[in-house]
Design a protein around this nucleic acid. Structure first.
Lengths: 205, 205, 205, 205
DNA sequence: CATGAATGAGGATTCATTCAT
DNA sequence: GATGAATGAATCCTCATTCAT
């Protein structure tokens, strides 16, 4: 006779755990953060945590999924409202630029995300999944815009969409890394600078 | 009564330990890599390791110093042979570009380095040290070139040296990160692309 | 939501651990006794022990406190029922005398206690605490009786209370030491002998 | 072709090691003192120490023998010069009394000795040896005097030599223990007090 | 004989996970 | 479902002893 609780309740509970875990993973790293840390942080008992997740690693993975899944769906949607490729690209640059100033929660999320990305280099399988996802989603986001821009003549046809896409994400990851480790890093200004360089290049005859 | 073993011998032994440790830290991360892993990897006994380093952390830190200390001194020296700012900047881009294809050892080093950089965001003190070092050395490397270029008129005077410097390292860190997690990342091409954008911008009237 | 286990249960568990630890410390000494010994002896898992005590040393210290704290309170109380100083002093001698034959547990406790006392000579801070406690409690126990006896005229006024007190505890510690290391030591007889000498001296004209 | 060194040299070397070891054992206890401590303290290399002693325990045992062997031989000799039992007994009391103020080396020796004595309660074999030695030498020292005194009529015949002997060593061990752990312990005064009590008792009709 | 580097068994402590209440 | 006590494998580090130089 297990006391049935609503799905709603369960979802809320999971959120609480994930939120506490995010803070802990960000503050100490996945390995160093202990379940007891998460207990202390989330106020949820150890046993309860294991009712919702079957291991520390699962919490970690869920935390990382959470982000990509939903956030990315929204992103693609938002872009679709713009009619020109240039506007779309510009919007993306601005979107990332305007994340600053970063909330603690976003910083935590970025730290955890980057650490996970790095960690993925150690696991063949994980690595493949992440790279595929990156290609299918992140790179595609930009290459689609590029192709659109080249078709409409907005962007010079000589630019390789893959390289522009690579450049974009290379740069964004670098910028977030620097922002996370250095309070004084001129995040917004530098993004604008790059945005200028890229757009100028793409639009030039 | 003479020293049992030569300084040379000791240095070699330390190198061996560091080399084994680097591989382990790269493969598993600092926390997850155990002393026993290092023992297995380096073939050196546990006790011997503790004769040369007083903790796992010390090995880690030495590994990170090793890199910056010497490598950076060499870098500054190499640049000084070029007479124009443009050549210097170009040289830096090329230097990083030509690191590819990456040896396993370099990949290991980068992974460990990036992980450490991220980790530093958790330790106020470490963070300050790293940022200061970054400012004093890495950023200065570029800003010096920028100022030189602006004085000689090679580079447009409107460009903010700090932003160019920030852009450069933001980008390099991002590129190394992507290279490390993705075998297919077009590292060289993208670096050349960025190099083109930046130089074009700086040289334009 | 009520406490998983009662306070009573916890106290009992602690007792069990302490009891096992006492036996181990007595049998091998604090340093030589291992946590695994305590595990084997008490039948309580290693992890559980660390739920109740945060280090081997804490177990040791608690073991030593346990004794002094309560036992001493009782001692002072018991003495207060006697109306003459002589009776009180005699009671103390008899109390220690009648500890023999020693139970294994008492022998253990004495061994551990003496070893700790000796060890305290190595730690300035510990040493000070122990000496203060000794002065405030053990010595005072006797000097109070002495002063009472001198005020009522039971004891000769020339006797220095501090010296009598010193003699008493010097002797008791010596006797317990000898008793612990030598089964054949005539503990009771010798205590009675000393009791006779001291009382005769104090009561003489 | 082992370079032969003189016996003299060897003895001196052993002394040096023992002296360093004594200080270390006193400062930290047998278990806690490490061979490296002894190396640091004596300035003799680890290898050399193992040329002279085959284990840490052997050093410890030798340290304890050293003392009893020679010191006790001298003691018996010294006593023999006195012609009356009373003088002999008094001499013994005075001898111990005049050890104070204690040199650091004596304190070290006492600490180590007492710790060893306590420790002996853990080893059946050791315990037997120590008790036999105690009986044969220490107790006998006093009982011989007692018998002599009773034969000459100096001491009352009712006194049990064994009890007096027991009392004497019980008390001396207690006094040394207290002296070692408490700088302010009135060692000399208390010994004199006990000496008075005992002699008065023995001489009384 | 002297030296101190190497060895690895052993010890204290931590922590993910389980499970009785 | 919630709780937190119990478990013990895993981890870092120490140190007595050995042995090549």
């Amino acid at each position: 006779m297990p006391p049935i609780v609503s799905e709603e309740y369960k979802r809320k509970k999971k959120k609480e755990i994930l939120s506490g875990a995010l803070a802990c993973f960000a503050k100490k790293g996945f390995q160093a953060a202990t379940i007891d840390d998460i207990v202390a942080y989330s106020g949820i008992s150890k046993g309860a945590i294991y009712n919702y997740f079957k291991s520390k690693e699962e919490i970690y993975l869920e935390l990382l999924n959470e982000q990509t899944e939903s956030a990315n769906a929204r992103l693609a949607e938002k872009i679709s409202v713009f009619s020109s490729a240039e506007e779309k690209l510009e919007y993306l640059f601005d979107l990332y630029r305007d994340m600053s100033p970063f909330s603690q929660e976003r910083k935590d999320r970025i730290t955890v995300q980057l650490e996970f990305t790095l960690h993925s280099s150690r696991d063949e399988n994980l690595n493949r999944i992440l790279n595929e996802r990156g290609k299918k989603f992140f790179l595609k986001l930009i290459t689609d815009i590029m192709e659109e821009g080249q078709n409409t003549g907005e962007f010079r046809s000589g630019a390789d969409p893959n390289h522009v896409a690579g450049l974009f994400w290379t740069f964004m990851d670098g910028a977030m890394l620097h922002r996370v480790i250095n309070e004084e890093y001129p995040y917004k200004t530098i993004i604008d600078y790059v945005k200028g360089l890229v757009l100028q290049d793409l639009k030039q005859g």
